[in-house]
Nucleic acid binder design. Structure first.
Lengths: 349, 349
DNA sequence: GGGTCTTGCCAATGCGGATTGGCAGCCCCA
DNA sequence: TGGGGCTGCCAATCCGCATTGGCAAGACCC
C-alpha cells in the first residue's frame, strides 16, 4: 500500500517565503496575484525572484483543498473512440485547457454514468459536461450539487448545448426527395438519445410533409451506432422482400457499414441504392464512394458546452439556452444519386 | 474570481466521527481500512454505519494532500483522435480505472509535451504514460522525479512497452515479395518516432535480404500520419515517372488516403497497385477494398503500459522490459494482390 | 507632538484526512 | 495484589496553501 521511496523533495511556498525573507502568507498573496493585495513593490519582486530562483510550482492539490475547487472538469461521453465524440472531446478540452482546467474523460462504455459521477464528486470536480446516454433520466440525487452542462440532451433543470438534429433529418429527407426517391428505409440505434430521436423525427416529419412514410419493416433499430451494426442492418434490409431506393442512417458509422454491406451484396451504391449518413466525420470523405451526410459541428459543440460550464463554475452569468441550436449542413457526396428510372414503384402523381 | 455560491454542504469524516461517537482519527482508521488498525469490532461497525447513514464520500483531494499522491495518472499522446491511439488510451484507461486511478489525457496536438509534464507535476500526478513524439529527446529535468513508462519509445532510463514494429515492416515486405512484387514505394511520417522508424527499417531490411531496395524517389516523407497526407503522397508518387507495383504505408490512415487517391486517379487497387498499411484499425475492414495491414495490439499496449506504471507507483517490483515486444500479425485483405503479369520490369532472375 | 489614517506585513486558522505517539483501562500471571 | 503486556481509542500534528484580522510603523493633519 505504501508508495515506493519518496522522489524529489518538493519546493513549497514556505521555501519561497524563507528565501525572500517574508512570511508564507505574504508569499501567497504575491504568488496568487491577489487583486486587493497590498504588498510593497520591492517585496513583491523579492518574492517573485525567489520563486523563480528555486523553481516554485504551486501544488494544485493543496490549492484545491483550501479553495474547494479542483480546476478540473469531468466530461462523460458514450465512447470516446467514436470519431464524432472524439471531436466533441477535442473541442471541450481545448477550451478547458485555455482556461487552466484539466479534463477528466469518462467513458460510459467502461463504467456506468452514475458511477462516473460518484468518482468525479470524490475528486471535487468543478463541473461536469455530460454527453451521455440516459443523462435525462438520471435520479435527481445523482446530479445534486454539481454544476452540469448537457450536450445534445436538453433538460429543463440544466443548461445545455445541442446541434439542430431535427434539421439534420429534414435536410436529408429533402435531399433524397429532390432526387426523386419515394421508397425509404431508416437505420438508427435503439439508444435513449435525444439527438438520435430528433434526427429520426426530422426525417420522418419531412417525409410526411411530402405525403410519404417509412414502412415499419424498413425502420431498423440496431444496438449501437457502430459500423458492424450498420452492416447487419443492411443485411436484414436486403434480405427482406421489396427494396427501398434510399436509406437514411442516423450516423456516419452506421452508414459506412450499410454501404459496405450493400456493395458486398452486389447492390451498387448509389446507382441502385442511395445511402446517407449524419455527422460528417472525417472518414466520410475517405470511404468509397464518399459518403453523403450532414455536417454536425462536433468541436463547436464541445467547445461551446465547455464555455458554458466555465461560466457557471466561475460564477459568471449564464444565459439559458440563449445560443440556440448549432446549425447543421447537408454535404452531398457520392452515396446518393437520383432514383433509377425503373423505380420499384411508379412515380407518385 | 470567486466561484459562485457554495453548493451542497460536504459530508466530512468529522461528521461521521461525531455521529459514531468516536474521534476523527478513529473514523479515519476504520474508513481507510488500515491494515494494522486496532479497532474494536463494535466501534468499527458504528463508524461504518454512520458513514453509510449520512452518505460519506472521502474527499480525494484532501487524501491526496496528506498521502502525497493523487491517484491519477497522466497519459500523453500525439493525438487521441487517431483510432490507433484511441485504442491505446482505452486499454490504459481500463487498467487504471480498475485500480482506482483516474487518467488525465494530454494531447500533444494541443500543447507541447514539456508543458503537459509541468501541468501534470502541479497536479501531483502519480505517474505518467508517454506515447508521444520526442519523448526520448526530452531534457533530463523534464522527467526528473516522475514515474514514467514509455510506450513504443524505448529508452535506457525508463521502463517501457512496445510492439514489434520491425516485424510489422518485415512481414509486410515478405507478404509483398511473396506476391511477386519487386518495385516498391514507402510512405511514412517524418516524425521522430521510434516505432515508425522501426517499421521502415524492418521493411527495407527484409527487401535488402531479397536483394532489393526502394529508390529514394519512392521513399516519401509526409508531415503527419493522417489520411490527407497519404493522399498527397500518392498523388506525388503517381505523378513521378515510372511506378511501383506495391506501396507500404507506415500506418493505416496513410494507406487509406493513398488507396483513395489511387482509385481517384484511375489506378486500380489492388490490380494495378498493391497498398499495405499498418495498425489494423477498425476502419481498415470498412474501406473498399478492405485494407491489407499488420495488426498491432493497441489496447494491449496501453493496458500493459498502465500495469507497468502502476507497479512502480505502488512500489511493487518492476521487471525491466522483461515482457519483450508485443507480437504483431499480418492481416492480408483486399488491397494487395499478385503483381500483374505485365510487370513494369522483368522478373528478377 | 498627540491623534487619525494608511500602508505593509504577519500570526492564526481552516480545508479534510492520515499518521504517530501515548494514555487509560483491562487481562493475566506471578 | 502489583506489575507487565495488550487493547482500544484519542490528542496532536502535518500536508501546502488561502484568507482573515490585527498590529506596528510611517504619513498626515491640526
Amino acid at each position: 500500500m505504501a508508495p515506493s521511496a519518496a522522489a524529489a523533495p518538493r519546493v513549497t511556498i514556505y521555501d519561497v517565503a524563507a528565501r525572500a525573507g517574508v512570511s508564507q502568507p505574504t508569499a501567497s498573496l504575491v504568488l496568487s496575484n491577489h487583486p486587493r493585495a497590498r504588498v510593497a513593490p520591492a517585496t513583491r519582486q523579492r518574492v517573485l525572484d525567489a520563486a523563480a530562483a528555486i523553481g516554485y510550482r504551486p501544488n494544485v492539490v493543496a490549492r484545491s483543498l483550501t479553495g474547494r475547487r479542483s480546476f478540473a472538469l469531468g466530461l462523460i461521453v458514450p465512447d470516446f473512440r467514436s470519431p464524432f465524440i472524439a471531436d466533441v472531446v477535442a473541442g471541450a478540452e481545448r477550451v478547458a485547457a485555455e482556461a487552466g482546467y484539466a479534463v477528466l474523460l469518462c467513458d460510459q462504455s467502461a463504467r456506468p454514468l452514475a458511477s462516473h459521477l460518484e468518482l468525479l464528486r470524490a475528486r471535487q470536480i468543478d463541473g461536469v459536461l455530460i454527453d451521455a446516454v440516459g443523462a435525462a433520466t438520471l435520479p435527481e440525487a445523482a446530479l445534486a450539487g454539481l454544476r452540469v452542462v448537457l450536450i445534445d440532451e436538453p433538460a429543463e433543470r440544466w443548461p445545455g448545448v445541442a446541434s439542430d438534429a431535427a434539421a439534420a433529418g429534414r435536410l436529408t429527407a429533402e435531399h433524397l426527395l429532390a432526387l426523386g426517391h419515394r421508397e425509404f428505409a431508416f437505420i438508427g440505434p435503439a439508444v435513449d438519445s435525444h439527438a438520435y430521436r430528433l434526427r429520426e423525427r426530422g426525417f420522418i416529419t419531412a417525409l410526411r410533409a411530402a405525403g410519404l412514410t417509412v414502412p415499419s419493416a424498413r425502420w431498423l433499430r440496431v444496438a449501437s451506432a457502430a459500423v458492424a451494426e450498420g452492416r447487419d442492418a443492411m443485411r436484414r434490409l436486403l434480405a427482406a422482400p421489396g427494396r427501398p431506393t434510399a436509406v437514411f442512417c442516423a450516423n456516419d458509422l452506421l452508414a459506412i457499414g450499410a454501404v459496405k454491406q450493400a456493395l458486398t451484396a452486389g447492390v451498387a451504391v448509389p446507382r441502385d441504392l442511395s445511402v446517407a449518413g449524419c455527422d460528417d466525420i472525417e472518414l466520410a470523405r475517405y470511404v468509397t464512394p464518399e459518403l453523403t451526410t450532414v455536417r454536425i459541428p462536433a468541436r463547436e459543440l464541445g467547445a461551446r458546452a465547455a464555455r458554458l460550464l466555465l461560466r457557471q463554475v466561475e460564477g459568471r452569468p449564464v444565459r439559458r439556452e440563449g445560443a440556440g441550436l448549432l446549425p447543421v449542413q447537408l454535404v452531398p457526396r457520392g452515396t446518393t444519386a437520383p432514383v433509377p428510372p425503373a423505380a420499384p414503384l411508379p412515380q407518385v402523381a
